[in-house]
């Protein structure tokens, strides 16, 4: 039997486990939250943000990307991974899971892939909800001009790249969530790392924090060619290394 023989059923098992849980809802709620905040700010104070003749989508998407990359994305991954691992921790299911004839590597890899796919879907949802919110703004506040322009191309491109920038933090948070039973410690560590990175973002050393990489990638600009593309390589490297290390450590752990 090869690895795919076990990985495919493992993925099907994980799909069943997250059915009807908050894990799926959070994957939708987190991008909705960011878009709603940007929408409310734009609706209430749009005169300050949107000028006549200038594409209002640019400023609207900028607000969404800033909020998402600096705070919401790393916080959301911390909460999502803690909730996801909690499905096993809360039900004391690890002993049962490890007593099934499935390689521990498949168990871990399926969880990593499902978490990664959920985060990817959140970025798709972010673009879709932003599009819907901007269109709604165009109907409710035609003076802002949303109906006269279209969403700029940098928005979906940024979302794809932000997802890749977040791979490093996904693998780290998943490891922490699998290692520590319960919700508080993994979520708390993720919250602490996010806030510390955000507060210290003006210091160059903070740019080594995977929790800040989505923000550092954007480089305070909406110009696609000025983004910090080296972050993508760093993040992907941490993702692969982190997965290998996690496989080794989690696979050797005893379940008492």
């Amino acid at each position: 039997m090869n690895a795919a023989t076990y990985l495919i059923p493992s993925l099907a098992m994980e799909r069943l486990k997250i059915k009807g849980t908050l894990v799926v809802w959070l994957a939708v709620f987190a991008p909705v939250f960011v878009v709603i905040v940007a929408f409310v700010a734009g609706y209430a104070d749009g005169e300050k943000f949107y000028r006549s003749g200038v594409n209002p989508w640019i400023n609207f998407c900028e607000h969404i990307l800033a909020g998402w990359s600096l705070f919401i994305f790393p916080l959301y991954v911390s909460l999502l991974s803690a909730l996801y691992a909690g499905i096993e921790h809360q039900n004391r299911a690890w002993g049962y899971v490890y007593s099934l004839p499935v390689p521990k590597s498949s168990i871990y890899l399926s969880k990593l892939l499902v978490l990664s796919v959920l985060v990817a879907l959140s970025h798709v949802a972010l673009v879709v909800f932003a599009l819907c919110a901007g269109s709604l703004m165009g109907m409710l506040k035609p003076a802002y001009g949303f109906q006269d322009f279209t969403m700029p191309a940098f928005m979906p491109v940024a979302c794809i790249n932000l997802f890749v920038c977040g791979l490093g933090l996904i693998v780290i948070q998943l490891f922490i969530s699998l290692w520590y039973p319960g919700f508080i410690i993994p979520a708390g560590l993720g919250l602490f790392a996010t806030l510390a990175s955000a507060i210290a973002r003006s210091f160059p050393v903070s740019h080594f924090s995977p929790y800040l990489w989505p923000f550092v990638f954007l480089n305070n600009t909406l110009q696609v060619h000025d983004w910090n593309y080296s972050i993508l390589m760093w993040s992907f490297t941490v993702y692969l290394l982190g997965a290998a290390i996690s496989l080794f450590i989690v696979g050797r752990r005893s379940n008492r």
């Binding site: 098992m13 069943l16 486990k17 059915k19 849980t21 499905i87 299911a93 099934l100 004839p101």
Partner: peptide, 22 residues
């Protein structure tokens, strides 16, 4: 005690094991 997923039905809990055991 049996290790079950309470948010799933009895059938779905068995389905998880069925997938593992192929």
């Amino acid at each position: 005690a049996p290790m079950l997923y309470p948010h799933l039905s009895g059938y779905e809990n068995l389905e998880i094991s069925r997938l593992a055991r192929q």
